[in-house]
Design a protein around this nucleic acid. Structure first.
Length: 355
DNA sequence: AACCCGGGGTC
DNA sequence: GACCCAGGGTT
């Protein structure tokens, strides 16, 4: 079945030309300055669903703040989230720290180099496991991500839907056969560089491609039609009133989000779901939920924020309270300067201009 | 297998 | 807007 796909495919020629190109053209990236498994790990987590250019400054800051597994293991989670602020998918940061703690406690600080041990760490799935084993430990393991599926769907003209889990397994077995056994680290990184710079999603630069002669899609002129991927559904809309509540001492009220689900453990200005109450009952809702007495002020603005699976429509209001504290554990009264010490989602950073 | 989980860049 | 990105966890 799988052998069929690779029938008449010149794996050795492909490897040679790909690696030859990579050694001459590889990108200089901060996590490529060594093969330190910790740096490779951090970079791979940050790069999940995130472009290289976005990651670079975060990676530099993160490594400065948490240079070793020991530094990250002992860090305060809020501090870790603050360093991750703006990067998105915040569970990545929490899972990473949790896994690093396990590495320190269970493996004496040495990052495992076996598929089973590595794959059992929180946040380390099939892709990241393969990436660390190949890039840091030179093992011929597949690391199949979007780039790999795009490149090989074209080179081998694979027309299965890459959104399906089964298709990903097909690519894993393909890579397992095609990967260079001499330099698997460079091979996997070469495919990623190729996918990012030449074999791009739209208008690939086939005329510059080092493996053009091996590409079945190019031979037939169908490279733009691959990979085949079913479309994502569009976002559900949710509306909230957001209150910038000021107390009589001039402090603002912020709220810690729950420790699971969307934007877990990040902070925000209190939000009132407008599918539950209308704007004129916002302070009633707030009193019921938090025991807080608030007087609604003027409207400050509208903010729209798109996530991968939902869309927030936020209406921001000023508000005042004569309460000076709250029994509710979630709430905190902080002055304007202090707000900056807490990790906020980007949607709420957009309202800081109203402070 | 389907859904949840961010944010930014591009066309 | 729609799509993409060095995916993983949960149900």
């Amino acid at each position: 079945m799988r052998a069929q796909i690779l029938q008449d495919f010149n794996s050795f020629g492909f490897q040679y030309d790909l690696l030859d190109w990579y050694y001459e053209n590889k990108r200089n990236l901060p996590w490529r300055e060594s093969q330190d498994p910790y740096k490779v790990w951090v970079s791979e987590i940050m790069l999940q669903q995130t472009k290289v250019d976005t990651v670079i400054p975060y990676f530099e800051r993160f490594l400065t703040k948490f240079p070793t597994v020991y530094d990250l293991a002992k860090a305060d989670e809020q501090d870790v989230l603050k360093t991750w602020e703006g990067l998105g998918y915040y569970s990545r940061a929490r899972n990473l720290q949790s896994a690093v703690k396990e590495v320190v406690e269970k493996y004496g600080g040495k990052i495992p180099d076996t598929p089973d041990e590595l794959g059992s760490l929180k946040g380390v799935g099939p892709y990241t496991k393969g990436a660390i084993l190949s890039i840091a430990y030179n093992q011929p393991e597949p690391a199949v991500d979007g780039n790999v599926m795009r490149v090989f769907s074209r080179v081998l003209k694979i027309e299965e839907d890459i959104a399906k889990a089964k298709t990903k397994k097909t690519f894993e077995s393909v890579v397992r056969e095609v990967i260079s056994k001499e330099d698997p680290s460079s091979f996997n990184q070469a495919i990623m560089d190729l996918g990012a710079t030449i074999c791009t999603p739209t208008s690939p630069a086939c005329l510059l491609c080092p493996v053009q002669e091996y590409c079945r899609a190019f031979a037939e002129g169908v490279q733009e039609d691959l990979p085949i991927k079913t479309k994502a559904k569009k976002q559900k809309k949710k509306s909230y009133a957001v209150l910038m509540i000021k107390d009589e001492a001039g402090r603002y009220i912020i709220e810690k989000r729950p420790d699971n689900g969307l934007l877990a453990n990040l902070w925000q200005f209190p939000m009132i779901p407008l599918d539950e109450v209308t704007v004129d009952h916002v302070s009633d809702w707030l009193y019921k939920e938090y025991g807080l007495s608030v007087k609604l002020g003027e409207k400050l603005g509208d903010i729209s924020h798109v996530f991968s699976h939902l869309k927030w429509e936020l209406v921001v209001y000023a508000a005042v309270t004569s309460d000076a504290k709250s029994e509710d554990e979630r709430l905190k009264f902080v002055d304007k300067q202090e707000v900056e010490e807490y990790p906020f989602p980007v949607s709420h950073q957009k309202m800081m201009k109203y402070l």
